[in-house]
């Protein structure tokens, strides 16, 4: 009796805390949604209203009419999809190698990998710009996708997840004569599905929100991606607050959908236990 009561209390406290944080985090977001239906001057009212008095869709209309939102949306989507699939493959492959093999220079190479994440972008911005021109990557989607396709972050993340894959499983496959690539593909990869699902969301998001590479590589407006176009909406002599918030809201949808689609995978857990026993 005592036990169940304390468990109920625990549950109430847990929910209370989770909801408190949820509300604090959602407030700016919900308010932003409300602002997308307002005039600029209503956004700055002393008594901001959550439900707009005279809601209108002008910000959304402007997004499509003045800013060709749909075109840039498709550009971003194409780049993000190609990036995500390639990155999942290359990052899990390298993460597998770092987690499950011992080879000369491994620690050194791993430090180099980590080191690559530590280089501040603006240190190498100028040389990168020169490089993009010299390699003829200007105005090509390959130029946007290739440089970051095997990013260190994903490899590091996959390595940490691959650590949990039991070595005995791999060894027994080797005894059966499986090639190393097959071991990675058929045994290790299915076991880290939750991590792959998380990385898919992160990789998609990273590409979707990437600002620098599209900016450096893509010159023609036709090819340009959403974040770059959105950055242009709020600048020195022009501040389309309502429009940029509408754009921001719509541009979260693909990641949100991906998140929803993959979230069962997040919880799939390692099936290692079952295999082991």
């Amino acid at each position: 009796m005592d036990d169940t009561l304390s468990r109920r209390a625990q549950r109430t406290i847990a929910y209370g805390f989770l909801f408190f944080i949820l509300i604090s985090m959602a407030t700016p977001f919900v308010w932003m949604i409300s602002n997308t239906f307002k005039e600029q001057s209503q956004i700055f009212e002393r008594q901001p209203t959550l439900i707009p008095e005279e809601p209108h869709l002008r910000n959304y209309v402007s997004l499509f009419v003045d800013f060709d939102f749909h075109k840039h949306f498709l550009n971003s989507a194409f780049i993000a999809v190609v990036h995500t699939f390639s990155h999942l493959f290359l990052a899990s492959l390298a993460g597998f190698a770092f987690a499950k093999y011992n080879f000369p220079l491994k620690n050194f190479l791993f430090l180099v990998l980590l080191g690559s994440m530590m280089v501040p972008l603006y240190t190498i911005f100028i040389p990168l710009f020169v490089l993009v021109i010299r390699l003829g990557l200007v105005n090509s989607y390959a130029g946007v996708i290739i440089p970051g396709v095997a990013g260190a972050f994903g490899i590091f993340f996959m390595k940490q997840s691959m650590e949990a894959v039991p070595g005995e499983l791999l060894d027994s496959a080797r005894i059966d004569g499986a090639s190393e690539f097959r071991i990675y593909w058929q045994i290790a990869l299915p076991l880290v599905r939750p991590a792959l699902a998380v990385l898919a969301v992160l990789a998609f998001m990273g590409s979707w929100n990437d600002f620098v590479w599209p900016l450096v590589v893509l010159r023609s407006r036709e090819l340009q991606t959403l974040p770059v176009v959105m950055a242009g909406m709020v600048s020195l002599y022009r501040m389309e607050y309502g429009v940029v918030m509408a754009a921001s809201l719509l541009s979260t949808l693909p990641i949100l959908l991906l998140f929803l689609a993959l979230q069962k995978q997040f919880l799939a857990g390692l099936t290692v236990g079952a295999v082991k026993s």
Binding site: L18, M25, P28, M32, N35, M233, V244, A247, S248, Q263
Partner: peptide, 25 residues
């Protein structure tokens, strides 16, 4: 569980520019 997972994830999806305007307000 999923309500919280998604709810907590929303902020990072918001574009930095839009989020900053909200925080300026």
């Amino acid at each position: 569980k999923s309500l919280f997972r998604i709810g907590y994830f929303l902020p990072i999806l918001t574009s930095t520019v839009a989020a900053t305007i909200m925080f300026l307000l």
